[in-house]
Simulated assay, not measured.
Amino acid sequence: MLDLDGVVYVGPDAVPGAADHLAEVRAGGMRLAFITNNASRPPSTVADHLTSLGVQADVGDVVTSAQAAARVLLDRLGPDGRVVLLGGEGLEVALAETGLSVVGPEDDADAVVTGYGPQVVWADIMRASVRIRDGLWWVASNTDLSIPTPYGVAPGHGVLVDTIRRFSGVEPEVAGKPARPLLDETVRRVGGDRPLMVGDRLDTDIEGARNVGIDSLLVLTGVTGLAELVTARPEERPTYVGLDLGALREPQPAPRETGGGWALGGWSGRVVADRLEVDGEGDAGDWWRVVAAAAWSHLDASGTAPSTDDLAPPAAS
């Protein structure tokens, strides 16, 4: 189960090597699903974008938080449910697929569903917020506070969720990562044994996998770097760490604990006077695995993450 932005592509461009890596693992028998918290685009648009980047993707390979939100609504309301929609095309398409009826903000309704939609008007937000405060059930596609745009990082749907939450005092039922509905919906739609979540964010992709009880692979082509990795909370720690999607075709050896630290593949790491030190040479992926093991061991024992000043990752071969 592949997150998209920061894993398969960054903005409009493919992550270098991503298309080739995915073609090879697919040829080796892996079933691929592309999942996203972005509820604004329907799966067909996402599949077309991936195809334009050289990544084979059919509509059935894409699962969005809008589809997961629609499933949450359908399971509780049944096909006759009436839903107020605050969001974009992706949510509208997902609701239509389930047969749920979309009604206006003033109409009789069973629920409100919200998602990222740049054309949502403030008057509709106000009316829906009052109805949520007064008891109308609320489902949110996701709580991402930011989204990438051509003009930089911008406020995401999570900002609207926070606004409505603070006004109404109501917590929504969330469909997107790290909540489990999106991953459950992906398994339901795509199938497969031993699901693996592949992502670049600890607080959505990796924590989401842990919430569902499946393995995860953190790739370092997106937002997570050294500072984020060494401070990861237990619920944010991946099963595996790799440089990029090539890690899907590589062994994932575990560091071994030594008398004074952790070692793997020619690297040894330890914390000395609250500073993380790594020496040796070898595969760059093994360096990151040693860093994670040494840092997390220290964090769990002391309650503080080690300093990484002057610690520089090796160049990938």
Rank of each mutant, 00 (worst) to 15 (best):
S129G: 15
R256H: 14
P105K: 01
A293P: 00
N37H: 08
P42D: 12
P12R: 10
D48N: 06
E207V: 06
R249S: 07
V120K: 13
D58W: 04
D61R: 00
V223G: 14
A33Q: 02
I132A: 14
V15S: 01
A175V: 11
L4Q: 07
D58R: 13
M1N: 03
R275I: 04
V271T: 12
D193H: 06
V174M: 13
Y151I: 13
V190F: 00
W137C: 06
G11S: 03
L160T: 09
A19L: 04
L217G: 00
G99C: 01
T231S: 15
A301V: 11
G60Q: 06
P178H: 10
Q119E: 15
P43H: 02
P148T: 07
G285W: 04
G11R: 06
G199K: 04
D215H: 03
R71W: 15
G280N: 09
P150M: 10
Y151F: 13
P251T: 05
M30N: 01
E207H: 11
D110Q: 10
G303H: 11
G280H: 04
N211W: 02
G225Q: 14
P306C: 06
P313M: 07
P234E: 14
Q67P: 02
D310A: 15
M197Y: 04
V187L: 12
G81V: 05
G81K: 01
Q252R: 15
L183A: 02
L100A: 06
T45G: 15
R31G: 01
L95R: 06
V241G: 06
G115I: 05
T258C: 10
W122C: 05
Q56E: 14
L74W: 09
G265M: 02
D203F: 07
E97G: 06
Q252Y: 08
D13L: 08
V271N: 12
G303D: 10
A140I: 13
G261C: 09
D200Y: 00
G90F: 03
E236F: 11
V230Q: 13
G285Q: 10
A254F: 05
R188M: 02
W296I: 08
W267E: 03
Q67N: 08
A18W: 00
P181W: 12
V8T: 03
I214N: 00
G280S: 09
T258F: 07
G28F: 01
G152Q: 08
A305Y: 07
V198T: 00
H21K: 05
W267R: 04
A263M: 03
Q252H: 15
S216V: 02
R289E: 03
D48E: 14
T64V: 09
V25E: 02
S297W: 07
A254Y: 09
G11F: 05
T45D: 15
P238W: 09
A111H: 02
G17D: 03
R31F: 01
L264V: 12
T45K: 15
L85G: 08
V153W: 08
G266R: 12
A263C: 02
W122P: 07
L299Y: 07
L220E: 11
R249E: 00
T204A: 09
V159L: 07
V113Y: 12
G261D: 08
W262N: 08
R270G: 11
H49V: 12
